[in-house]
Each structure stands twice: as structure tokens, then as C-alpha cells.
Design a protein around this nucleic acid. Sequence first.
DNA 1: GGCCGAATAT
DNA 2: GATATTCGGC
Length: 506
Amino acid sequence: MVEKWGGDENGGPDRDLLNSPNMFSGNFPEGLRVLLFGEDRQYLHILEKHLQEFGYVVTTSHDEERAMYLLRNHWDKFDIAIMEAHTLEGKIFRLISENESEIDIPIIITSQDDSRESVTKWMRNGACDYLIKPIRPEDLRLIYKYLIKKMKLRSVTVAEEAEEKAAGEKSSFVGDSTIRSPNRRKRNMLQTEEEDPDHNRDSATKKRRVVWDDNLNGKFLEAVNYLSRNGQSDVVPKKILERMNVSGLTRENVASHLQKFRMGLKKKNDQNKSDDRSLITPQERGMSSGERSNELYRGRNVQFPTHHVNNIPQPSYFQQHNTSLNLMTQRVSPPGNHYDRLSVASSSRNLVTTHQIHTSHQQISEFPCNDQNIEERLIFNEDEDDGVRNLITNWLTQNLEPINLFPLEESVIATTMRFNDIQVSGNQQQHVHAPSMVHIPLLPSSLSHNPFLDKKENIQLMDFNGQQLCPEQQQSNLANENRFPETNPRRGSPRRDKMGQDRDQA
DNA sequence: GGCCGAATAT
DNA sequence: GATATTCGGC
């Protein structure tokens, strides 16, 4: 079949490939049978003339009923139809876009309406082309291209089927599968597009593309996280899908995303294995500029520093100012990073506590840096933000002694942290312990991030001399910590140094 | 026949 | 690079 069409120069296309056995003479496209409908007789006549000049056999109708009848019941007597959209709008639209429609000839829509909406509507619903009036004769002459396209597709299909038949039905024909697969895929695609007017063309056939935004990904991660605890065999698309409980999402969507997720884990794991140097160096530890933090972020083993927003006022402050902790939300690092959401730290004279809220991890971890080690985890969804705020508010209310505020310039510190990953691979799951948490000195505070900046005059500032981390403590931090989130009494302690000092160290 | 995961296509 | 689809295998 392919050969016939391929060797078309002399013989023309195989008519069997079309539904019009007696159609062509040797000099295609002469003799092309065109069904032409339009309201304006005069204009219709012009079009008819042009078509005839090209050797086409034209059946013209300015009668709506008749045109519809011909198209519906005798479409196979034509090779192509040119229909004016205006009057037939509803009827023809329904006819060619309806699912049961069997009309298997290219249909060109003509219209004066050049709006994108109109063009799109028709092209998506069965029209093979959309010609805006006035129509150029050249465009009329070239209508046969749709026939060629159609035949070409057919021949591919037929040839391929023949090929498959010849190859036999053995599904174990491994060597061939990689080759056949794309072809088959192509065929399916083409069939849907070109041979199947019912199939609403691509839009209705194709699945809506799922965008894994932070919210959706968060749910995904939460589900994975949750299922991980129940045993590795549960971390499968179906279970994840159930846990996510997102309407419209399919198992396939999840499977695909899970695949990506695992690849990401693998990549990360490989990097960790191959490159342990990426723990920041002591020199780097001394650095604190914004640029440096970017550098750290690029480093393989180091997360982007978390900004700790201090200066959280006493609960009464919130009441007084009729505000709440949502003011403290801020994006602190590039999207997609583990720490891409919210980090809140609160401080008091003898207690430094860091709340870290990672929506992408779907958890809140609290790391009170007092003598007790407290770990608290909560599962939440992004849209339950109020719940999070309440939680923190409550926590602050209940647990903190009155908070002393630091000078705003020192309100942000940074600490690199890493989570213990769960590596999922096949049915295996193993915990990968993260390297030590490393304390990074002061990171410049972006004051614009500080919600209390404009309320500065209301805040009682005080210096915090005597609270600085001493070198030994930092050392012991590094030496002792090998898992997260063990806490250390001084971790996250606010720095009293002027920022300039830290920068100078670097 | 449902589901999984890897490979491959879009 | 992200997501969809296919496909062999369980």
C-alpha cells in the first residue's frame, strides 16, 4: 500500500484508500469531487467557478437543508466539503462534531468570522481547515492537500497493520517491540486526529495535563511520607492516589510523578555517595552574605539556609494589632527547595525555638533549643493554613515566656539542615541519614521580609549580649549531630553580633 | 484484568 | 524538563 502511494507520480493514489472508488483519473487532483455550500449565491458562484477551473467537480448548494442532507447521507459521494459556517452554524457543528458522526471526508469551514474563538472552535471539532472570506483562489486550488494527507495517513496505517501481521502476533518479540511501539503510537494518534471526526480531535481525547504545583506536590509528598511509615510495600501509585484524595487525578498521573520523584531521590543519593566533600567547609561556614547562601544552596549536601524570623512579639502584640502569625510567612528560598515555604523562629531570653514549617514536607518540626528535646510533627495541607497559624499561635501562647525582641537587623539567622531521606527503590526502602546540621552564621536579614518592620516603633528592642554561640558549642554541634532533628541547646540561637562582623569573617 | 515500574513518547 | 503513554511482567 505504501508503495502504491509512494509511487504516485504515474498512477495516482489507490482509490481503495479513499471511500471514492471511481474518483480519480491519473492526473490527480483533477476530478476532485467537492461539495460546496454557501448562502450567498453570487459568491458561491465565484467559488464554484474557481473550483471548476482547477478541474474539480463541484456540487453546489445554497440550500441549507439539501446541503445538510448531502453531507449527512451522501458524504461518500464527495472527496471534500466546503461549508459556510454562518447559517449552518449549529447544525453542521453538531453533525461533524457529534460522536456518532461517520462523515469521513475533510470538511473545510468558510466564514467571515476571523476570531480566534471561532477558528479554534471549528478546528477542534472536526473541521480540517477554516478559510476566512474572501477566499483566495489559491486556497481553493490547494484543498486537495487534505486528501493527500488523509491518504498518507491511511497508507501508513494499512502498511503497518500488514507489517504487524507479517511479523506475527508474538508478544514476546522483544527485539521488535521498541521499534514497533513508536509506530503504533503514531498510528493511534493519527487515527484519532484524522480519521475519527467524532473524537473531538485532541482536546477531548487527550487527558488534561496535570501540573504538579506546590500544593499538589505537597499532597503527594505527604502521602508518600505517610505511606512510608506503614511499610514500603504501600508506597505505590494506587495508595498514594487514595491518600491524596484529589478528584480528577489518575493513578497514571501519580505513577508518572512517583517515577520522577524516585529518580530525584536516586540522583540525590548518588550525589551524596560520590561527593561527601560537599559539606560546607569551615571557611564557608564563616560566610554569611546572601551570595554565599546561594552558593551554599548550590552545594550538594547543603540545603538552602533557612531564614529564621525572630522578633516574634508577645501574643498580646497580635491582639493589640489585630494581626496574626500569617504575617511571618515568607518565601525564603527558591521554589522546589525543601525550605521553600515558611520558617518561623521565636526567641526568648533563655529559650530559642525554631519552628520550621515545610509545606513540601508536610510537616512542622519544632526544635526547641532548650534542655529538652522535643520533636513534634504535624501533617497539614497547604489550604489548612489557618490551622497552622493557630497551632503556632497556641504554641506561642502556651509555651513561651514573654518574648524579648532583638534589633531587627539581627532578626534573621541561617542554619543549614538536612533531612533524613527515605530512599525508595523498587520495594526497598531505606533511610539515608543526613549529614550533620551545620550552623551558618548570620545571614543578612531582608528587612522587607520582616513583617514587623513597619511597626518598629511599637516594638521594644533589646540587645542580647551574652547569648552568642561560643566556638566549642559549634564544634560540638558538628561533632555530635548526625541525625536530624536532634536538638542542641544552642542551635538556632540568635546572634548578637552585628551582621557586619560576620560578613567580615567571610 | 488490575496494577506496577521502566521505557519511551510528547 | 515535565508529564503522558506504552508495555512487559507480576
